[in-house]
Write a protein that binds this DNA or RNA. Structure first.
Length: 287
DNA sequence: AGCACCACCTGTGGGC
DNA sequence: TGCCCACAGGTGGTGC
């Protein structure tokens, strides 16, 4: 489910609601929800910690706790974080995996249908337990056009979609925002990175940032499960131009949106508006 | 090094 | 209505 915009929407909301609050305790309801340390130590270490600040890196949500501890959360496909006073009001109650019980009397509820989501408590130097150390620059708060161009040059043979999805390349994009960005930039998802010149790359960088920005402004994309910290859906799904629109008219030309598989993921594109691949094939034949 | 494939889970929607 | 299959916003491991 959540990509960078969805995690950022949740972070901003929780930042207003729980900053400065204290986690009295945690309740765990699903084995495997804690990535590190053990469930027992997770519960012991989190008790009585003050939430000093909130961060996001890629799709990871991070709460800085007093005593140099970090609470790290990844929602993976179907995870949600909901701020409630009473669990009875929780929409995803059936899939509740953990709660953080705050001194204020409120709770942060971690629900997750598919159980892929994880939480970690990390001390300084323990980022590798969550894979945080392997992330590239965050697309929203860290990456620069220069980063992007330099990194593209290092992976020039990879299809551009593969790179955009690779969190070690740059962190935060998932399947929806990748397909939407490539459509908006007019680039076929299979185009090899090395085929993009500097101007193409710069344009793609700006388009990705604009697409993420609009996603955040509209409260994220609720294709199915995503809800913000108040339990409400986002609105960017109404603005999707290709994702999940196989067989529909493009909207910018008379062609029809196609679906294929790339990087192991369902991939949506317009064969007419995203022609980079065709040009690349032609230039390869001329070699 | 990089990529394809499977695994992890549960639910939903389409076709018959 | 029911069954079966494909597919779903993510990532890590394995083997070629």
């Amino acid at each position: 489910m959540p990509e960078l915009p969805e995690v950022e929407v949740i972070r901003r909301e929780l930042n207003e609601l729980i900053l400065g609050d204290v986690i009295n305790s945690a309740d765990l309801f699903s084995p495997g929800v804690i990535g590190y340390p053990s469930e027992e130590n997770f519960c012991l270490q989190i008790m009585g910690r003050k939430i000093e600040s909130t961060l996001r890196k890629g799709k990871f949500l991070i709460f800085i706790l007093n005593g140099s501890l970090k609470l790290v959360i990844h929602l993976r496909m179907t995870g949600t974080l909901t701020h409630v006073r009473d669990i009875i009001n929780l929409r995803e109650k059936k899939y509740l995996r953990a709660t953080l019980n705050l001194k204020s009397g409120e709770k942060v509820c971690f629900s997750d249908v598919r159980k892929f989501g994880r939480m970690w408590i990390l001390r300084p130097g323990e980022d590798h337990h969550a894979g945080l150390d392997r992330l590239g620059p965050d697309w929203w708060s860290e990456a620069t056009p220069g980063d992007f161009i330099n990194r593209l040059a290092l992976r020039s043979k990879s299809p551009i979609k593969t790179l955009l999805l690779d969190q070690r390349f740059m962190a935060g994009l998932g399947n929806i925002y990748t397909d939407e960005s490539l459509f908006r930039a007019g680039i076929h998802p299979a185009t090899r990175a090395g085929y993009l010149n500097k101007s193409d790359a710069l344009n793609l960088f700006m388009v990705v940032r604009d697409t993420l920005s609009e996603g955040i402004d509209r409260g994220g994309t609720s294709f199915r499960d995503y809800r913000n910290a108040s339990g409400k859906p986002g609105g960017f799904q109404e603005k999707l131009l290709v994702y999940q629109r196989k067989g529909e008219l493009c909207g910018f030309c008379d062609d029809i949106i196609q679906r294929t598989i790339l990087a192991g993921r369902g991939t949506y594109f317009c064969p007419t508006c995203q022609q980079f691949q065709k040009w690349e094939d032609r230039s390869r034949k001329q070699e």
